[in-house]
Amino acid sequence: MQALYSAPETLIRTPSHYCPGCGHGIAHRLLAEIIDEWGIRGKTIGLAPVGCSVLAYNYLDIDMCEAAHGRPPAIATGIKRVHPDNVVFTYQGDGDLAAIGMAEIVHAASRAENITVIFINNAIYGMTNGQLAPTTLLNQRTTTTPEGRNPLTHGYPIRICELLATLEGASFLARTSLSSPKDVLQTKEALKKGFKTQIEKKGFSLIEVLAPCPVYWRMSPVESLKFIEEKMTQTFPLGVFKDWEKTVSAPGGQATKV
């Protein structure tokens, strides 16, 4: 029998600690597939964040490094400058990147560092039981906003792609989701483009992935995919915000489809 699909070799065969239906598993698998397809397993270095994916090094059979909370772009800058021919990526969640690591990500992008950032946006703090994150949607209920996020007291969600699109150093910025097979495959294409940006030394690339967190959104995994499609994409529109190969869209302007 011929295998039409089997798990990528870079993905270590061990049961993960992620909750059922978590988007991290899909994102890890896409990364492993790209590393296998391009044969860059020996020269890829990943940076794990603090958050649910803090143990990403247990699942990806590549060189991984752990960074302090929010600081993977700073460590990745150092690694990439010492080893310019290696492929260096950071894998960060919304608490890591958009909250405590906001300074690092903005300055890494403005310095046009040749690194790829994979930003998993699930609009909640999953690791610590579902508190308000900077990317939590308005009126979304979390353990710290039981009445829903109120802009008067909790502010508004931060749109990272639109924010970084104002910086000249950012070369490729895209937002994709994991809500259907089509979206997952588009995410894979966007991740490939991010790695291509880095390999061709075109500068900073960031791919924001809207991922489900069914347990702390208090819904079933299938409902959480609907939530991404119907609610999250209203606040976080999908698309390419900056692309070095094509005409650059106006900062914060109309996004084009991936």
Partner: peptide, 19 residues
Amino acid sequence: SGCRYCAVMCPEAAIEIFK
């Protein structure tokens, strides 16, 4: 039909498809 949609969505890479 071997479309692989199930494998694409599986967060645990638990699905293999044979033909």
